[in-house]
Design a protein around this nucleic acid. Sequence first.
DNA 1: CTTGACCTTCCCCTGCACTGGAACGTCCAG
DNA 2: CTGGACGTTCCAGTGCAGGGGAAGGTCAAG
Lengths: 129, 129
Amino acid sequence: MRIGELAAASGTTTKTLRFYEHAGLLPPPKRTSSGYRDYTTAAVARLDFIRRSRTAGLTLAQIREVLDIRDAGREPCQHVHDLLQTHLHDLDRQIADLQELRHTVAHLHDRAATPDPTDCDATTVCRYL
Amino acid sequence: MRIGELAAASGTTTKTLRFYEHAGLLPPPKRTSSGYRDYTTAAVARLDFIRRSRTAGLTLAQIREVLDIRDAGREPCQHVHDLLQTHLHDLDRQIADLQELRHTVAHLHDRAATPDPTDCDATTVCRYL
DNA sequence: CTTGACCTTCCCCTGCACTGGAACGTCCAG
DNA sequence: CTGGACGTTCCAGTGCAGGGGAAGGTCAAG
């Protein structure tokens, strides 16, 4: 299977596939006599895993950790569990930060609901921020 | 006032000040005979506005818009109000997206609570993702 | 035999907001 | 007069996940 076929089968691009190979997420495939990459169907499953992981918001570095464990012949399940737990905490913190920011911005927005430009002096630029 | 003093007075760095000047956020100040930047106290107020705007999560491009309006001699208050409204909607969308992602990840995490590695085959890498 | 689709490697570019460092000039205290 | 703290310009890199495009090789169809 050539790189274009794999890209179509996995819903990505040839650029991304070469990038993943360079980033250590995809093992370098065999080459045809003319130098073309020649993938097995295992690559489709691997790319599906990568896609699922990306959907879950994992970074390529985190995904590579999991793949490295699997490629070393071990079961990555426990590591995946830990990773998801950390990720969950990260998400909670991000959400809390954004909600706090939203609160601040909503307050500023209310204050600026009936702006009185004469109240804003040029040195302060705008008092509603 | 030299660049180091302004940096100290505004709680930032000389690197950032030169970067802001280059980015069009700070007007190029006068220079001393030896070529040193020589700021007035107005720069402190302007940097305070930039700091407040950054705290509200605005990008430098958005802040520059506001500054450009003020520098053109107009009152930026209405534009600030519109900007805050757009920003509020962006934040709502970001929060909603993150909450949806959190749901997905929480579900995956629960599924992986009692991982059974024998259930994971190598081609799938890990079924808990 | 040639056209066009596909493949190869290579390096640079994107957005965001800076940060690091090199190579050099200036200023003040001791 | 020398050392150190400050200033100057300019170039490059950071993290993230690729994308753009050049210059060339390969392959099947017409």
